[in-house]
Amino acid sequence: MSFLINGNSGKGPSSPADQGGFTGWTMVGVDPVTPQEAERARRDALVEGPRWVAAEFRAHVDRLTLAAPDTVAVGTPATVTATITQPGGRTVPVAAPASADWSASPSVHVGPADGVKPWQVARFDPATGTLTALRPADSVVLAVTVNGVRAEATLRLTATSGAVASAA
């Protein structure tokens, strides 16, 4: 039997922010499956079937902050973090189970290392918060959106190290 344990909406969360506690709501989507997909799933419940149910855990956002270095040296991984400020001043790291959409300039690959295109100058892995410059570039933009609120940072990719700053 499938079930969903939903987060808190009208009261404070029962767990700390670093353990996934935040206030918000959940959007659930259900897509139809073909009769063949349904029959295959009935015959063998252990085989991964079609992705027909999706849930987005939408955190309440009073403020969203994206912290990234101004400059990233080629080949030196840099840490990027995002933080949600919720009602009452509670701060929550942007990480699972909260849903977040990461995006970037077209010259930046967002996702794991496999999939970087030849023209891309950097890659960002949202799962680890690591941005790696592959080639120098005057500027690239990295952005995160949580529940309709967006924060972005502009970074320069160089052959030498730079200072750290925050963008909101």
Score class of each variant (00 low, 15 high):
residue 40 R to W: 08
residue 60 H to K: 05
residue 6 N to L: 11
residue 166 S to P: 00
residue 113 A to R: 13
residue 8 N to S: 10
residue 125 D to G: 06
residue 166 S to C: 02
residue 51 R to I: 04
residue 145 T to A: 05
residue 52 W to L: 14
residue 164 V to P: 07
residue 97 P to T: 03
residue 158 T to A: 15
residue 80 V to R: 03
residue 156 R to Q: 11
residue 123 R to M: 07
residue 128 T to W: 03
residue 38 A to W: 14
residue 133 A to S: 09
residue 125 D to N: 14
residue 20 G to W: 03
residue 166 S to N: 11
residue 70 D to C: 12
residue 68 A to T: 04
residue 152 E to C: 00
residue 140 V to M: 08
residue 162 G to E: 02
residue 66 L to T: 02
residue 17 A to Q: 11
residue 96 A to E: 05
residue 34 T to R: 02
residue 20 G to A: 04
residue 8 N to L: 06
residue 99 S to F: 10
residue 39 E to R: 04
residue 60 H to R: 05
residue 27 M to K: 10
residue 16 P to K: 13
residue 101 D to W: 01
residue 72 V to P: 01
residue 134 L to I: 11
residue 27 M to S: 12
residue 40 R to I: 13
residue 113 A to W: 02
residue 84 I to K: 04
residue 105 S to R: 00
residue 123 R to A: 03
residue 62 D to G: 05
residue 137 A to R: 12
residue 5 I to W: 09
residue 93 P to T: 05
residue 70 D to R: 15
residue 16 P to G: 09
residue 162 G to T: 08
residue 39 E to D: 15
residue 11 K to R: 02
residue 2 S to C: 00
residue 57 F to I: 04
residue 32 P to N: 12
residue 78 A to M: 04
residue 52 W to T: 13
residue 142 L to P: 07
residue 87 P to C: 11
residue 167 A to S: 13
residue 163 A to T: 15
residue 139 S to K: 13
residue 117 K to A: 14
residue 51 R to A: 12
residue 63 R to Q: 12
residue 86 Q to N: 03
residue 31 D to I: 03
residue 26 T to H: 09
residue 85 T to M: 03
residue 109 H to R: 09
residue 138 D to W: 00
residue 104 A to D: 04
residue 43 R to T: 15
residue 58 R to L: 15
residue 115 G to I: 01
residue 59 A to Y: 01
residue 18 D to E: 15
residue 24 G to R: 01
residue 166 S to W: 00
residue 108 V to R: 01
residue 32 P to K: 08
residue 117 K to Q: 14
residue 19 Q to H: 10
residue 54 A to I: 02
residue 69 P to G: 09
residue 51 R to P: 10
residue 25 W to L: 07
residue 36 Q to M: 05
residue 40 R to H: 02
residue 7 G to P: 08
residue 26 T to S: 07
residue 112 P to L: 14
residue 136 P to H: 05
residue 168 A to I: 02
residue 63 R to E: 13
residue 105 S to E: 06
residue 150 R to F: 13
residue 142 L to A: 04
residue 52 W to Q: 14
residue 139 S to E: 14
residue 155 L to Q: 10
residue 101 D to M: 12
residue 12 G to F: 06
residue 97 P to K: 01
residue 159 A to Y: 11
residue 119 W to A: 14
residue 85 T to H: 04
residue 159 A to R: 15
residue 92 V to W: 00
residue 68 A to D: 01
residue 18 D to Y: 08
residue 53 V to H: 09
residue 41 A to E: 14
residue 69 P to T: 09
residue 20 G to E: 02
residue 60 H to E: 12
residue 137 A to G: 09
